[in-house]
């Protein structure tokens, strides 16, 4: 049977598909079935897509900001995951308090997921509440005025458009709030 594979292309197709399918199925469809935590929302997690559909104005703003984040490719340079690495918990933390690591239950409603793969800029998984709206407005207009040496491009079409700026800020302030971990209060709720 094995010897015939290189002479019979139907057999070949079957074997190539089969070999691939073992790993293909076990690593795509099986994991969410084996690990229920992927689909179980964290207690503090807001279901913004559903709230926005229900007419919640704030949730709608968050979802609009998220769409801008996707549109302008923010996620190519900013990750949204505090990994199980000590330095990550310090960098994602705030005022000497370490941030908890990111867990699957904090991202149940994310679509598309925005975990990211490259950090040209800092991780944003716990960015919510760290800087106020004025800071973000200035930063979007000219990042280097607040962070000299930054590699972030300016986004005048966001900074100068009140609707987009409000949405972006609402989205950023929503990040990382499924877990309650900060001791002092934020700049903004």
């Amino acid at each position: 049977m094995i010897k015939k594979i290189d002479k019979n292309n139907i057999l070949f197709v079957a074997a190539a598909t089969g070999f691939f399918a073992i790993g293909g199925i076990l690593t795509t469809f099986a994991p969410p079935l084996l690990d229920a935590s992927w689909a179980k929302p964290a207690p503090g997690l807001q279901n913004y897509p559903e709230l926005a559909k229900g007419g919640d104005a704030h949730a709608d703003l968050v979802m609009k900001g998220r769409a801008i984040y996707v549109r302008d490719g923010c996620w190519y340079c900013h990750t949204q995951q505090t990994r199980t690495i000590e330095a990550d918990t310090v960098r994602s933390g705030w005022r000497d308090v370490r941030s908890p690591v990111s867990t699957p239950d904090e991202f149940v409603f994310d679509k598309p997921h925005l975990f990211g793969t490259r950090r040209v800029g800092p991780d944003l998984s716990r960015a919510g509440g760290k800087y106020d709206k004025q800071w973000h407005a200035t930063h979007f207009k000219d990042p280097r005025s607040l962070v000299p040496g930054s590699a972030m491009p300016p986004f005048p079409w966001i900074a100068n458009n009140p609707a987009e700026l409000d949405a972006m800020v609402a989205y950023i302030q929503s990040l990382g709030r499924a877990k309650d971990w900060r001791p002092t209060h934020d700049y903004e709720e």
Partner: peptide, 14 residues
Amino acid sequence: ATLFTTGVNQANLN
């Protein structure tokens, strides 16, 4: 398939 999934499940497929 990614159109029908969210969160970590979608990331895994991605």
